[in-house]
Nucleic acid binder design. Structure first.
Lengths: 105, 105
DNA sequence: TGTTCATATTGATATTCTTCGATATCAAAC
DNA sequence: GTTTGATATCGAAGAATATCAATATGAACA
């Protein structure tokens, strides 16, 4: 089974590729169909499909089929969840017992 | 030269490994020395050094040398910057001209 | 100065990821 | 039903990453 660290890592891994960041940026101005995204990026069709799958599975993006076309948009919930996650993992806890290192340093 | 997409991708790439997420979690409760982190993870010393380098270079972690020991802690500024970045790239823009796809779909 | 100990770097290997071309699926239109 | 067009999946190649063992560096201390 996958632990929570791996699951969280997967969320950020979705953002760790420049092509996927470009796709997300395109979606900031609204829903886009796959062919339009493909036209703006310098990648092949199967590569785009792969990236869209990662973005959808990580929750950042939602997809909708309309006939033979696929439309993609940013998921408000998914993006919020990622922000909450980032906030959670980077918050310094206050009751912070400096206890000293058990290895003596 | 590296474009901003690559630079941003690098930030999230730092969070895309479960060992690094575990390290960050340890640092949430305060500064830790390398040997202590090493004792809690199931990785070799050179591997830890590699991960710490990535965490420091991405801005999430600050380091401080004290004699032969290295101490690591979460960087408030670095974490804030990452949160701002995530917020920026996932915000849906309002003046959102749905214009229709130029490819006819 | 030489030894010891903690950490960093190097070089090698296994794994994972990105990308592509080819093919499969799926929906519309004929 | 067959064809056409859009997207998904498959299989392979190359690049990037995680990891380790070995070695180098750097700091304290004898």
């Amino acid at each position: 089974m996958e632990n929570s660290y791996e699951a969280n890592a997967k969320v950020f891994k979705a953002l760790s590729d420049s092509n996927r960041l470009m796709i997300i940026e395109m979606l900031q101005s609204g829903e886009r169909c796959a062919c339009e995204i493909l036209g703006d990026l310098n990648i092949g069709q199967s590569t785009l499909s792969h990236h869209m799958k990662i973005l959808c599975e990580s929750g950042f993006v939602e997809c909708r089929r309309e006939g033979k076309w696929m439309y993609y948009s940013l998921s408000k919930e998914g993006c919020e969840a990622a922000k909450k996650l980032l906030d959670k993992i980077t918050t310094v806890k206050e009751n912070n017992q400096k206890g000293g290192c058990k290895y003596g340093c």
